Computed example of a mutant assay.
Amino acid sequence: MQVNPSGYYDWLREPQSRREQEDKRLTVFIKQFWLESGCHFGYRNIHQDLMEAKILCGRDRVLRLMRQAGLEAQRGYGKPKNMYAGKPHTLI
């Protein structure tokens, strides 16, 4: 497999990298802020909440973690369907 023995034994001692561990910790905070927003906020607002809470991370990292966790912002309201102004047209 062409893997250095030292790398293999490092992996045995610590199978998850520090980045993966930090991602798990951040995902907990992201889910918490997302739920507190009523599931409305997207990654930009979640990133601002993290910055206000003194949790440092990048905006793109928040986006990546939200996608992995399946968290999405609730989009705006659409126009009502089948609602037309005025009176219906009649042929005489």
Rank of each mutant, 00 (worst) to 15 (best):
residue 38 G to L: 03
residue 27 T to D: 08
residue 92 I to M: 04
residue 26 L to S: 07
residue 33 F to N: 07
residue 31 K to H: 10
residue 68 Q to I: 12
residue 91 L to Y: 15
residue 88 P to G: 13
residue 33 F to H: 10
residue 54 K to A: 00
residue 26 L to D: 09
residue 40 H to D: 12
residue 62 V to Q: 15
residue 68 Q to Y: 04
residue 70 G to W: 06
residue 45 N to P: 05
residue 42 G to P: 09
residue 13 R to C: 09
residue 90 T to N: 15
residue 61 R to V: 01
residue 88 P to L: 05
residue 69 A to Q: 11
residue 23 D to N: 15
residue 20 E to N: 14
residue 29 F to G: 05
residue 43 Y to A: 05
residue 64 R to S: 14
residue 90 T to G: 13
residue 85 A to T: 01
residue 79 K to E: 04
residue 3 V to A: 12
residue 65 L to Y: 02
residue 66 M to A: 14
residue 48 Q to Y: 13
residue 72 E to N: 07
residue 41 F to G: 09
residue 79 K to H: 09
residue 53 A to G: 01
residue 43 Y to N: 08
residue 11 W to V: 01
residue 47 H to D: 06
residue 76 G to A: 10
residue 27 T to L: 13
residue 18 R to C: 03
residue 40 H to Y: 14
residue 10 D to T: 02
residue 17 S to R: 12
residue 18 R to K: 08
residue 14 E to T: 00
residue 53 A to T: 02
residue 91 L to V: 15
residue 29 F to N: 11
residue 35 L to V: 06
residue 55 I to D: 07
residue 59 R to K: 15
residue 57 C to P: 03
residue 10 D to L: 10
residue 77 Y to I: 14
residue 50 L to V: 03
residue 50 L to A: 09
residue 12 L to Q: 11
residue 90 T to C: 15
residue 78 G to L: 06
residue 59 R to D: 02
residue 25 R to V: 00
residue 54 K to T: 09
residue 62 V to G: 15
residue 41 F to Q: 04
residue 69 A to R: 03
residue 92 I to V: 10
residue 19 R to H: 12
residue 82 N to M: 04
residue 62 V to F: 05
residue 7 G to A: 02
residue 44 R to I: 01
residue 15 P to S: 11
residue 83 M to F: 10
residue 5 P to Q: 05
residue 84 Y to E: 15
residue 60 D to I: 03
residue 89 H to Y: 09
residue 73 A to I: 00
residue 15 P to H: 08
residue 81 K to G: 02
residue 4 N to M: 00
residue 38 G to V: 00
residue 35 L to W: 04
residue 23 D to S: 13
residue 20 E to I: 01
residue 72 E to Q: 12
residue 51 M to C: 09
residue 77 Y to L: 11
residue 32 Q to V: 01
residue 30 I to P: 06
residue 58 G to Q: 00
residue 39 C to P: 00
residue 39 C to G: 08
residue 30 I to A: 08
residue 79 K to W: 12
residue 49 D to I: 01
residue 47 H to C: 07
residue 29 F to P: 02
residue 47 H to Y: 13
residue 20 E to G: 07
residue 64 R to Y: 10
residue 52 E to K: 15
residue 68 Q to T: 12
residue 55 I to W: 07
